[in-house]
Structures are given as structure tokens and as C-alpha cells.
């Protein structure tokens, strides 16, 4: 670990003055962590928009609950507690959960919703059993793994934040490049297949992106609530625009705002996990969007004449 990080006071005077009111309690570390969490929030909103457009908004739920198992397994197998190792384990178990989900649906012919619920419940239970077992045996370094349940962004180091930011930027870059393909498949997969697009591959890429975001979002929101970061911002964004590109951007911004606000709010009181606050911020944005967005918002609709321009 590095020595005590420089505080804001050591920064160029302009920045110090501008950030004056925030100086209390904020260090370089915290700022980098905030920046990292901000990119994660943005990327989660972006990935979630694609999932919502494809009508599978909860696709990350099973992956999210399975991450706990991977975190525990990574710790057990390597003895290390650094974030990259634990998140790597989380990614492996997230992907495994999604594979099991596909297997249950296609080969075991389980109903979709039941399959998701089964994977969620059993994988989370297994993860919990693993973590509890680790703590019960008092393995060194095993305490604190439960931060991954509800999120604990304050524990992020600058290096961790950079890793998260890098993954998030890669996700956003991929979406930017292949945006029109994702939208094509989400809108009309029959047409997409007819013109020769590999719909299955594109869907797999989408699910992979969501899985990555779910894993990357663990420090900010925790396993139980990270799907909210992927689901809520796109729903809110849909209220404001009828263009897919703008919806994507807006969802990213909402996700960013929720992540940053949630993390900041959690510094107000020690012991408050970050996850619930991030989600509550996102929910607040969503409620506001539902109320005041032009054309679709409730307040707006109350004031238009019946049979106005609204679509059926």
C-alpha cells in the first residue's frame, strides 16, 4: 500500500479553491475512487440500456448473485484479497451462472423465470455458505469479504479505481463501435438474422457486457443491488427521449450521477454501505423522470387534453 496520499491542499491553488468546500474528508484517493465509480456508473447505464432495448433487463440478476461464490473461491484458491483477484473470481462465477442459466433453459427445458430464480437463489446460497465458512474458520484476510454484499466504495484504492475505469471504458467503447448492430438486433432480430447478422453472437456479447458491468459494479453497489445500477437508469432515461442514441447517453449520465451521489452520501456516516444509497439515488432520478419528463411524465399528461398526441 502506498504512503499517506497527498490531500487537496497540496494541489494547484485553483483546484484547491474550487474544491474548497469539499476538502474536508476528501483526499486524492477518494477523488480517484469517485472518478472510477463515476465511469462504472456511466458504463452500467449504457450496458443496461442495451439490455432493456433487447427486452431482457434482468439478464444481469443471475450473474450478480453468483459473484459472491467467485469472490470467496478466488480468495480460497489464491489467498489474496486484492480487488483484481477477487473480481476475476467474480467474473468467472458470473459467466458460469449464465452458462448454467442457458443450460437450464435450453436443455433442461426449465421455464425462463424459474431458471433465473433458481440460479439466483442457489448461487447466492453457495456464495454465502463459502463466505461464512471462510469467516468461521478465521482464515487470515477472510474478514471483510462481506463488503461485496452491499458495496463499500470507500475501500477502493486508486489502482483499483483505475482498473474499474479501464473495464468500464472498454465496455463503452465496444458499445459505441457496434451500437447500430445492437439496436438492429434489439429492434427486429428476425430481420437481423435474415440479412446475415449472427444474432446469437450479438446477444452473447450483450450478456457478456452486462456480466462485466455487474462485476465491475460490485465495489460500488454490492452483489445484491448491482443489477439496480443496470436496470434503473435506462428506465429513467426512456422517459426523456424517443431516440435510442440519446437514451443510451442519458442512461449513462443518470448511472454516473447515481453512483457518485451514492458514494458521496455514504461518506456522511460510517457503516453505511454504498449500495443502498446508490440505488436510492437512481430510484429518485427515476421517480423524477416519471413525474416531470416532457410528454411521458405524469405531470405532463395531466395537463394535456385527453386524446392528445400520445401514442396508443
Amino acid at each position: 500500500m502506498m504512503a499517506a496520499a497527498p490531500t487537496l491542499a497540496a494541489w494547484p491553488p485553483l483546484v484547491a479553491v474550487a474544491a474548497g468546500p469539499l476538502d474536508a474528508g476528501l483526499t486524492y484517493n477518494t477523488l480517484v475512487a469517485l472518478a472510477g465509480v463515476a465511469t462504472v456508473g456511466f458504463a452500467a447505464g449504457v450496458a443496461g440500456t442495451l439490455a432493456l432495448l433487447r427486452r431482457r433487463p434482468l439478464v444481469g440478476d443471475a450473474a450478480a448473485h453468483a459473484t459472491l461464490l467467485g469472490v470467496g473461491a478466488a480468495f480460497l484458491l489464491t489467498g489474496r484479497r486484492d480487488l483484481p483477484t477477487l473480481l476475476a473470481g467474480a467474473l468467472v462465477s458470473a459467466v458460469a451462472a449464465l452458462v448454467v442459466l442457458v443450460f437450464l433453459r435450453r436443455i433442461a427445458r426449465t421455464r425462463d423465470d424459474a431458471a433465473t430464480a433458481i440460479v439466483i437463489g442457489v448461487s447466492f446460497g453457495a456464495g454465502l455458505a463459502l463466505l461464512a465458512g471462510i469467516t468461521a474458520r478465521g482464515l487470515p484476510g477472510g474478514a471483510g469479504l462481506e463488503q461485496f454484499l452491499l458495496g463499500h466504495a470507500a475501500a477502493l484504492t486508486a489502482q483499483d479505481a483505475l482498473l474499474l475505469a479501464a473495464a468500464s471504458c472498454a465496455t463503452v467503447a465496444l458499445v459505441a463501435v457496434a451500437f447500430k448492430e445492437f439496436v438492429l438486433v434489439a429492434f427486429d432480430d428476425a430481420f437481423a438474422a435474415a440479412i446475415g447478422r449472427p444474432v446469437g453472437l450479438i446477444d452473447t456479447a450483450l450478456v457478456a457486457l452486462v456480466a462485466v458491468m455487474v462485476v465491475v459494479g460490485l465495489p460500488a453497489a454490492g452483489a445484491v443491488l448491482v443489477t439496480a445500477l443496470v436496470v434503473i437508469p435506462p428506465v429513467a432515461a426512456r422517459q426523456w427521449t424517443t431516440r435510442a442514441g440519446r437514451m443510451l447517453l442519458l442512461a449513462g449520465l443518470f448511472g454516473l450521477a447515481a453512483a457518485v451521489a451514492g458514494v458521496l452520501a455514504s461518506t456522511l456516516r460510517p457503516g453505511l454501505a454504498t449500495g443502498p444509497l446508490v440505488v436510492l439515488t437512481a430510484a429518485a432520478i427515476c421517480v423524477v423522470s416519471f413525474a416531470v419528463a416532457p410528454e411521458r411524465g405524469w405531470l405532463w399528461r395531466r395537463s394535456t387534453l385527453p386524446g392528445g398526441e400520445e401514442s396508443p
Partner: peptide, 11 residues
């Protein structure tokens, strides 16, 4: 459902 139950749980 996803929006509602995650928000309520967080609350």
C-alpha cells in the same frame, strides 16, 4: 419489477 423491488429493498 426490477426498478421497484431493488429500490424498496435499498430503502
Amino acid at each position: 419489477a426490477g426498478v421497484v423491488f431493488t429500490s424498496l429493498f435499498a430503502l
